[in-house]
Computed example of a mutant assay.
Amino acid sequence: MKLNWVAGGWNTPDTFKGVPHSVNFDSLESLMKTMSKCTYNGEWVTDSKGNRIDIDLRGICLK
């Protein structure tokens, strides 16, 4: 599965602003563990075929 986001934060270089990014995770548990230490910024999760997975990342972040 992949965590996806569009770069656009204050510290993002102009060449990367608006560009979609993603990172692979081996399991849902590892993704949730990582995101529990982060601030939610509009990220979304997709499966290996690119289908969006319904998961409450906002509820997981900063727990």
Rank of each mutant, 00 (worst) to 15 (best):
P20D: 07
L62A: 11
N41T: 12
L62M: 14
D56M: 06
K17D: 06
V23T: 15
G8M: 01
G18A: 11
C61P: 01
D26K: 14
G9R: 05
C38H: 10
G9Q: 03
N41H: 10
S30D: 15
D54Y: 08
L31N: 04
P13K: 01
V45H: 00
S36H: 09
E43A: 06
A7K: 14
D26H: 12
L3Y: 00
E29G: 05
M35H: 04
D14T: 11
I55T: 09
A7S: 13
S30Q: 15
T12P: 01
R52W: 01
G9L: 05
I53N: 04
R52N: 10
Y40K: 08
T15W: 13
S22K: 09
V6A: 03
C38A: 15
H21K: 13
P13T: 05
I60E: 02
G9M: 06
K33T: 15
N11V: 11
G8F: 07
I55V: 13
M1T: 12
N51Y: 08
N11R: 13
T12C: 14
W10I: 11
I55L: 13
S48N: 15
C38V: 08
N11F: 08
K37Y: 06
K49H: 14
K33C: 09
V45L: 05
K63L: 12
W5E: 00
M35A: 01
K17L: 01
T34P: 00
D26E: 15
N11P: 00
G42H: 08
D14Q: 12
W44E: 00
W44I: 07
K17Q: 12
W5D: 00
P20T: 10
G8D: 00
D26G: 15
N51L: 06
C61R: 00
T34C: 09
D54T: 11
G18E: 12
N11Y: 10
W10M: 12
N24T: 12
C61M: 06
W44F: 12
T39E: 14
Y40Q: 04
G8N: 04
D56A: 10
S27H: 08
T15Q: 14
F16A: 10
G42K: 07
G18Y: 07
D54S: 14
R52S: 07
T15I: 14
L3C: 01
G50P: 01
N24Y: 13
G50V: 04
G9C: 10
T46K: 01
D14K: 12
G59V: 12
I55R: 03
K49A: 13
R52Q: 15
F16N: 09
K63W: 09
T46P: 00
N24M: 09
S30P: 00
G8Y: 06
M1N: 08
W5S: 06
K37M: 14
S22V: 01
T15K: 14
G59A: 14
S48M: 11
G8K: 04
D47S: 08
S48W: 11
I60N: 01
R58F: 07
E29C: 02
N4Q: 05
G59P: 03
T39Q: 08
R52A: 12
D26P: 06
K2I: 02
T39S: 08
L28W: 07
Y40D: 04
T39G: 08
L31A: 03
L3I: 07
M35I: 01
G8W: 01
T15G: 00
L31C: 04
L57F: 07
G59E: 03
I60R: 00
S27T: 15
